[in-house]
Design a protein around this nucleic acid. Structure first.
Lengths: 381, 381
DNA sequence: CTGTTAGCGCATTCAT
DNA sequence: ATGAATGCGCTAACAG
């Protein structure tokens, strides 16, 4: 805990500058000196002082990853994928952790304040990059504050990547793909280039999912939405309603009593699915299908429905979203929408390191594919 | 990205040292000066330079968390709990991120080399603490190298906490609680105090689980073990066999052909459960129950069994381990052993920050409770 | 209670 | 290709 560059230099009979150069490998050094230095490093068991080099170089090798909750596989899978691209991979030399970045995972719990707090903390660490995953609150104030923080980060050389989140836009986006409003510039200064964003086709996926139910013959479909005013929630709900509207089914027009009645907002957790399904049944006993905001909510709904002695899918169909690993092992296997979480995370990781070029327009939308399984079937005659 | 302590000091009409003091709050400062400084900080939007302060103070506010795979809820839940104790909690002032630590999550993928690499990286960062979660490889060489790294970390002031992992012991531990061999000191120097460890009662939980099956009347029980030579795998397998042996059932004596025949080693993933169950059926068509190394493996086994037209639990019983969130929603609900992942993580987080006293003997064993659900039943007559 | 003085360990100019 | 010197921004004694 005390052997420094100077010690290594002395041992190798060179100057500290030279040691620094061989360690960073970004400067020509004679082969013989290099090996001499390397040997000294080894003998002394020298370990670079990260903070010191970060201070001198004005950049650290830390990458911030913001997630709602790392215990949720939705974020866990993305985080894992991001990590796989920035950390020590299997093919790297374990004995020479040079240029290895490390991921700082920040659990925001979905709280806008905590999101901002973490961004400040990351700014303070002079993070090399920051990846923001998942949707966020659609509040203009928060979006403004967020944009300001991100701009500040970028100004300091931190690369910013949005993964599974819309580029910073106004609240009324997602009603339809392409129907976005303009970016929200912070209260001051030059917006600069927008952060690169990888988004999921939540709207399209949701529309196809509900379309599948409609094709099956369902007309009374309840929707278990996520927390209100969050991008992901809205996009999925909007997609659902768009499908309903296109088929002229009940609840397709937002704002109507019918639409309100068939929609229950809750969290993205199992308990919300359980409670929400019960509430939906109370409001509309003739329900033939329930679409959930995500797989976890869907599982909660299934539990509630089963307790009501309703068989899935004979008596009522249930569908989820995300296709998390456990969806296929649910009872019955859950019909859902597959989101390429791993690919998105891996790509975001590469983007964060500048190892992959930004997509045209700085935004790429990843597909959301319908996965029809056993939890959906035609309604009872 | 360039306003420094000095700038704030100038603006507030005080010295840099004073600013540092109010910011760190660990030194008496006059109320008026403090507010003047705080205002300057605010006006200038000053953000501390983490690396610089880490260098000067010789410690950072980063906490390393080693996990096998953050995408696995087993680790995700623990990581989330750890994080909840060290990061910005809801009750903290979002505008004053002082003393907020951040978690660096390191995915080792179960690789010993990567585990060591990460430890070196963490040493380099001068991490305030390191939490190692989950079991590890039982190889003496690795254990030795690990002990050395950890000692080095502790020598540098980094607090080390083992969460869900045995204290550094020799390979032949876990055969019975208390049957441990002595600690493995590294090849050199003074061992110093062992890191504090929070362990799970894998042995006892496994024994109770298999005991439950035996009570039900099962005698031909297959075991889907995790990767060989890992602490968690062994403890669970040993517990299973101890129960078998106590009942005089087949496969209770390790090393016998019978025991080998009824045990299949694989990974901790779903595919291993699927393949393993098929293999078990091939070896022993008369199987009446399958015990899996964890819930994920159990789910894979269920899928395979169902494809073989075997009903669970009527034709064959299945049991898991860990009681991950999805276990209760499986079809049928999985009988398993509950491991207090959240509590363990939270406690480890507090231990890492020195906010909780180390347990007596520096090691505490957390209970593993049997959760009997619908996937187990008496064998067919 | 506050200011002054030194480094912390490394990456960089500049020289050579 | 290598060495010497300077400073990154902050904290920690030490004065006062």
């Amino acid at each position: 805990m005390s052997v420094t560059l100077a010690d290594v230099a002395a041992r190798a009979g060179v100057s500290a500058a030279t040691v620094s150069r061989v360690l960073n490998g970004n400067y020509p050094v004679a082969g013989s000196t290099r090996s001499r230095v390397l040997r000294a490093v080894d003998e002394l068991e020298y370990v670079v002082n990260g903070p010191a080099s970060a201070l001198a170089a004005a950049t650290s090798d830390l990458v911030g990853v913001l997630v709602n909750d790392i215990a949720d596989p939705f974020f866990g899978v993305m985080a894992s994928a991001i990590q796989s691209q920035i950390g020590p991979a299997g093919d790297h030399d374990a004995e020479a952790p040079h240029g290895q970045k490390m991921a700082i995972i920040c659990n925001t719990g979905g709280s806008p304040e905590r999101e901002l707090t973490y961004l400040t903390l990351l700014l303070r660490q002079r993070a090399a990059a920051v990846v923001l995953t998942g949707g966020t609150v659609e509040d203009p104030d928060h979006l403004g504050a967020l944009a300001t923080r991100l701009r500040r980060l970028e100004a300091g050389g931190t690369r910013v990547v949005l993964c599974g989140r819309q580029p910073l836009t106004a609240a009324t986006d997602g009603a339809a793909p392409g129907g976005a409003h303009g970016p929200v510039p912070g209260p001051e200064e030059d917006p600069g280039p927008a952060p690169v964003a990888l988004t999921f086709d939540n709207f399209g996926g949701a529309r196809r999912l509900t379309g599948h139910l409609l094709d099956l013959g369902h007309r009374r479909i309840g929707y278990l939405a996520g927390p209100a005013a969050r991008t992901t929630t809205r996009q999925r709900l909007d997609g659902h309603r768009a499908a309903l509207a296109a088929a002229g089914a009940a609840g397709g027009e937002a704002g109507t009593p019918e639409a309100e009645r068939l929609t229950v907002h809750g969290g993205y957790d199992r308990a919300s699915g359980y409670d929400g399904a019960l509430e939906l049944l109370r409001r509309e006993p003739g329900l033939t299908a329930v679409v959930a905001a995500n797989d976890t909510v869907a599982l909660g709904a299934c539990a509630a429905l089963r307790e009501r002695a309703l068989r899935i899918p004979e008596d009522i169909s249930v569908a989820g979203f995300d296709d998390l690993p456990f969806a296929i092992d649910a009872a019955p296997a859950l019909t859902t929408v597959r989101i390429p979480l791993h690919e998105a995370g891996a790509r975001a990781g590469r983007l964060a390191l500048g190892r992959e070029e930004a997509p045209a327009g700085r935004t790429a939308t990843l597909p959301a594919d319908l996965m029809v399984r056993a939890s959906t079937a035609p309604p009872r005659p």
